[in-house]
Design a protein around this nucleic acid. Structure first.
Length: 289
DNA sequence: GCCCAGGATCACC
DNA sequence: GGTGATCCTGGG
């Protein structure tokens, strides 16, 4: 990977499979928004970041060499060659979804932020999730200034554990407010999210599901988007629809995971993201035929 | 006013 | 271990 560092920017040259829109508009992250010029801007790891393409290069700003290798390289999952994950698939559905979502990558986000964000996602839509998360950050997160603009880091476990239910409800969390407080307290008092990376998929999933507000789908999202379990296969209503209409498979959450693992292999979660994104952006395909 | 949106929980079987 | 009702809230 050829990366040049100048003017506070990291310029990743000749990068394949990196498209900011397909990375940030597919529902895996809630704090990045499109800017007027096609770039995406947001906050992660307590820092502001701007991301865009310049021809065949991807540009990150601000980003020093240290920040690139310590944070963003892993955040954008740059160690994985996405072009070669599903090469030998005779799977036309996945191939089409992959072409549609070219440049999509599954981010490695911070576990606590991912956990709380997906607790909020329960029985909810992306637009509202974004709003609730943003209010949560403004209310309980650490403020910082970059180039004259004030931004807010995602709140630490301590901040969420200590704020009363009224504050969380005020952010729009509704009936999920007590789940957030309770789970934040669990993390604050010793539940080790990082340690789950070392466990195998099903053990880590069971541990997550012991937390308030975390069921099988939310657990899979946390595993896939923040704990490096690329085989996790979140089964939401859209994926269930794809599985039924396109693969002729109907089953419980557990059966869907087993089927996905057989069909897509150890990177099933990445296949899920392509399929999910394609289905969401082309909702009409389920109405024809 | 009614229904739904990218689920989890609880009670009950 | 499986099913069905209920849960805040904003938008169509």
């Amino acid at each position: 990977m050829d990366v040049e560092f100048r003017d506070g920017k990291a310029i990743i040259k000749n990068i394949k499979n990196f498209e900011p829109q397909h990375i940030f508009d597919n529902g895996q992250a809630f704090r990045f928004f499109p800017a007027a010029d096609g770039a995406y801007e947001g906050v992660a790891h307590g820092r502001f970041l701007r991301v865009w393409k310049e021809g065949e290069s991807a540009v990150l700003y601000p980003c020093t060499e240290d920040e690139f290798y310590e944070i963003w390289f892993h955040y954008f999952d740059l160690g994985l060659e996405y072009a070669r994950l599903f090469q030998d698939a005779s799977d036309k559905e996945l191939e089409r979804a992959q072409q549609f979502g070219h440049g999509l990558r599954v981010l490695n986000q911070q576990p606590f932020e991912t956990l709380i964000s997906f607790i909020i996602s329960a029985n909810n839509n992306v637009r509202r999730i974004r709003g609730i998360v943003e209010k949560l950050c403004r209310t309980c997160g650490q403020a910082f200034v970059f180039e004259g603009e004030t931004h807010y880091a995602f709140p630490e476990p301590k901040a969420l554990a200590e704020c009363n239910a009224g504050v969380l409800e005020g952010c729009g969390a509704g009936y999920r407010a007590p789940y957030i407080a309770k789970t934040a307290r669990a993390v604050l008092t010793g539940f080790d999210l990082e340690a789950l990376k070392m466990l195998d998929y099903s053990l880590a999933k069971n541990m997550l599901m012991s937390l308030a507000g975390v069921g099988p789908k939310v657990a899979d999202c946390v595993l896939l988007f923040s704990l490096g379990k690329k085989d996790a296969f979140p089964a939401d209503v859209w994926i269930k629809r794809v599985m039924e209409k396109r693969y002729g498979f109907v089953g419980t959450n557990k059966q869907i995971y087993a089927y996905a693992h057989r069909t897509f292999g150890k990177y099933a979660g990445i296949a899920q993201q392509y399929l999910f994104y394609y289905a969401r952006e082309n909702a009409g395909i389920f109405e024809e035929k």
